[in-house]
């Protein structure tokens, strides 16, 4: 007869780690899809235009959000935080006896 112990992750731990992974993938995906802008986030995007008569090049702003590097860092930081919190939940151990 022998005893063996197996460890199963707790549902909370598993859930938090899954949420962290989804958050990280989502944030990186959104940042990439919006142009992978390596500067600060923009609430409005400058668009250069030309006044034909005078030859003046001027800027107008298009209202749209472009996530920047602090958006990426914030999302990655939050995902890392969730992962660290998940480690606080202990694994469930089950003991099995076999003859």
């Amino acid at each position: 007869m022998s005893n063996s112990t197996t460890h199963k992750p707790s549902p909370a731990r598993l859930g938090l780690q899954l949420a962290a992974a989804v958050l990280l993938i989502g944030v990186v995906g959104f940042w990439t899809a919006k142009g992978a802008h390596t500067g600060w986030s923009m609430n409005q995007v400058p668009v250069k235009q030309l006044d034909e008569i005078t030859g003046i090049e001027f800027v107008t702003y298009e209202k749209r959000f472009v996530p920047g590097i602090e958006f990426l860092a914030g999302g990655a930081g939050l995902a890392a935080g969730l992962f660290v919190v998940s480690l606080l939940f202990k694994r469930q151990s089950t003991q099995t006896t076999s003859s």
Binding site: T38, G39, W40, P46, D51, T54, I56, F58, V59
Partner: peptide
């Protein structure tokens, strides 16, 4: 009347230059 007039400003900064109008 066409709203073209603007002064553009540019400051070098950490990460990227700050540009505006």
């Amino acid at each position: 009347p066409k709203g073209v007039n603007a002064i553009q400003f540019h400051l070098d900064s950490v990460l990227e230059p700050i540009s505006g109008t």
